[in-house]
Design a protein around this nucleic acid. Structure first.
Lengths: 139, 139
DNA sequence: CTTCAACTTTAGAATCATTATAAAATATTC
DNA sequence: GAATATTTTATAATGATTCTAAAGTTGAAG
């Protein structure tokens, strides 16, 4: 398979050196069509425990941030919880299930925002995040 | 003035004992009509430095969380930044200015959300947060 | 008003996420 | 392949938040 080749290309095109560690992270994050939500710790665990590859937590942080900056990942922050990253970088929104502590994607088209206000003078809009908090029905 | 009385009542009605520290925090947060955004640290500093009252950071945390649980404060979490609290508990939204690291309220009516999706089975919607990220124009 | 149980505050320790550091390893360029 | 720039790494440092357990305060009941 030439998947690895593609990752090498992808990184090189972004001016990121394709190191072993970065390629391993690409493999975990971008091999499948499925998008997913994870914390830095989750990702480090997958690599260390499932793939049994040694990787420094600092490297995982560095890489995740580099990928975020290049637009390969989105960060979602939850009040009273930690930061999650999302491999789905299309414009879309989220449910946050506060019982399961879990994000669920909502397609961009499923919510229509009308009359979004103008940015304050001298500023411009960079992105809009909608988080719908949900919890278990109380019976 | 009977402001203090009112705070005592407010707390008692919520089943929160009106202690000196909690009343002091009420005074800082709810005396003015103006709403504002702050971190736990900001609040502790105001009390210690401006009011020159000694208060433990742990108490500020406890109180802020108690007030949040009772609905007197809202928490807003920013990707790659920390948690902010908001004395405006009306349903409303925010700009986040990533240069100034500052939240700006957006009136609820200024954004119309159409077709908000149903919560997943067995869950119900508890709240919706819209954060519009803005940054300085690049010239 | 005194007493007592329940609750709260406090300082400091503990934890957790994240960032900084600087030496060793690796990648790129020539 | 040697020189330079970048990256990885383990570890320390930081910062936010929570925990702990002892000391202090509050409210209810007599």
């Amino acid at each position: 398979m030439k998947e690895l080749e593609n990752f090498v290309k992808k990184l090189r095109n972004s001016g990121i050196r394709p190191t072993k560690q970065r390629l391993k992270i690409c493999e975990v994050l971008f091999s499948s069509d499925k998008t997913f939500h994870f914390t830095v710790n989750d990702l480090a665990k997958i690599i260390e425990e499932e793939l049994r590859e040694k990787i420094s937590l600092a490297t995982v942080y560095n890489t995740v941030h580099a990928f975020k900056k290049k637009g390969y990942l989105k960060e979602i922050s939850i009040p009273g919880d930690k930061s999650y990253f999302d491999t789905n970088t299309n414009h879309h929104h989220h449910f946050f299930d506060s019982n399961a502590k879990e994000l669920i994607d909502i397609d961009f088209n499923q919510i229509e925002l009308k009359n979004t206000p103008k940015a304050p003078r001298g500023k411009s809009i960079k992105g809009i995040d909608v988080i719908i908090n949900v919890e278990n029905d109380s019976q």
